[in-house]
Design a protein around this nucleic acid. Structure first.
Lengths: 225, 225
DNA sequence: AGGATGCTTCGGCTAGCATCGAAGTATGCA
DNA sequence: TGCATACTTCGATGCTAGCCGAAGCATCCT
């Protein structure tokens, strides 16, 4: 017949309120877990899991496994475009908006992710190293400038690059919804931060920076100078 | 909550195969009747009627009543845009295409619509008069050039413009899916065509042009010269 | 190793909706 | 006026799919 049924299959996926809630929650490009998406959609976890599996099978979402979490994000900007178009069509009848709530502030600021720094500081770290061209985000690895800078801080870059473990690994951050620095370098730099006394491990996964430590951290690794 | 449900309502409308077939059939901007849309969707007439009522209520379609027909068309280009976007997303899985079949050739070429010319010739007539600036399509009515030209053909334009009936009326053509010329002028010109012997009424609504008549018709009213 | 967390799979329940036949309304044709 | 066509409304049917609880797997933490 026509191509009606093929677009109907996609549209039907967007036509369920729970799935639509999930997709709109992902429209800012962040990645969310199954539980979180289930919450924003107002459905139980098994239901959310089923919905997300369908959306992934239709290539509307991509998934990144991260430990026991599964982070879903929109598979591309064209998905968001269609969603915006639908919102435009829907405005011919009515619309509404709202925002979500707060979370644990300390965890969001800095915490440990496996063995490296996560949260606001972790994201800042990755951005800073990229801005200083110490590492290359596109093809992850140290640059010459990076080797020099890190050696100046007392790190053994040769040992880092000899190991089996990837030096740089971008790791999705659950609070910032951006990548932070993982891999061997991430672990080494967390050790550096703790070793310099800039921060200490707090309750649970929390990393508590001292005021001086935060200042030094930004000066050393932050995007600015 | 979020605006998920509002987009879900629209998407759910596009998510039914029958409705999606109808919408894709309308994507070229033509207008189709309930019966025809039911046929392309593969559903019975009551089903089609219900679907179209929903699509109209959601402002995705607009309807034009014309006698006992109801012509549905997309309510705007943004609807087509979203549909195309959905087709794009659907291509990540698979797609298909096809075209519809033929119809009665004579009826499509020329027929009477109420009291004026319809079909291929009728559409050509409207386009020709507009191209010759005899009439103004935007604000329907005769121009000075039109009065002169029509008077030269022996028509009483003053009488036309005195009557209660609108002189120019754009009438949707079911075979060409474009407007043809209706109104008092349309009726008068059909009379002219028949009076000149360019064509004669055939079986049913058919208007049968003679070869010479067709040539004269195009020379007199066609877009060229 | 044991317990906790995150997620998936399975089974059964339920609601919503697409579908069509039959009857009713409106319009056009003779 | 009577018949045919185009469409709508009504009522009944049947199927699909969303939904959750319970159980099972995987991963992380201690």
């Amino acid at each position: 017949m026509q191509d009606g049924p093929v677009i109907a299959a996609v549209a039907a996926l967007l036509g369920d309120p729970a799935r639509a809630n999930m997709l709109t929650a992902l429209m800012d490009g962040r990645a969310l877990t199954v539980s979180e998406l289930g919450e924003v959609a107002g459905v139980a976890l098994p239901t959310a899991s089923g919905h997300l599996a369908k959306l992934e099978a239709a290539a509307l979402l991509t998934v990144e496994r991260q430990g026991r979490h599964r982070y879903y994000r929109l598979s591309g900007p064209d998905v968001a475009t269609v969603l915006e178009g639908l919102m435009g069509l829907a405005e011919r009848t009515g619309a509404a908006r709202a925002r979500t709530g707060p979370r644990d502030a300390a965890l969001r600021e800095a915490r440990v992710c496996y063995d490296h720094l996560a949260g606001e500081r972790g994201v800042l770290l990755l951005r800073g190293l990229v801005a200083r061209t110490w590492i290359d985000e596109a093809r992850p690895g140290l640059t010459d400038a990076g080797r020099a800078g890190l050696t100046g801080l007392g790190l053994d870059t040769a040992a880092l690059e000899r190991g089996r473990r990837p030096v740089c690994r971008c790791c999705l951050d659950w609070s910032e919804r951006r990548s932070h620095l993982g891999g061997a370098l991430g672990a080494a730099l967390l050790g550096h931060v703790l070793g310099c006394g800039w921060a200490a491990r707090g309750h649970g996964r929390i990393i508590a920076f001292t005021p001086d430590g935060a200042r030094a951290f930004v000066e050393t690794f932050g995007p600015e100078g």
